[in-house]
Amino acid sequence: MPLHFELVTPEKLVRSEEVYMVVVPGTEGEFGVLGGHAPLMSTIRDGAVRVFKTEGAQAEEIVVRGGFAEVSAEGLTVLAEHVTD
């Protein structure tokens, strides 16, 4: 079950794609989000969000600052103020 992942900054929508898993550096510890994850809202500490396109694939790291993650039925949305690929 793929996960719909969106990464949004105030300037633009950076990513909107189907991925396998995303590991998010939450303020209270890292957590991985797979498809069908329970609804969750968490603040993010500055660090790298790791995106796994497919199972076992090489992780792609996106460094975010000032972030916030929301998991809902639609998927994972990361709101970040600054993003460096």
């Binding site: 303020t27 968490s42 603040t43």
Partner: peptide, 11 residues
């Protein structure tokens, strides 16, 4: 039920 991390107020 939406889980909040930390809690609603902190977020």
């Amino acid at each position: 039920v939406v889980e909040y991390e930390p809690d609603e107020e902190a977020i």
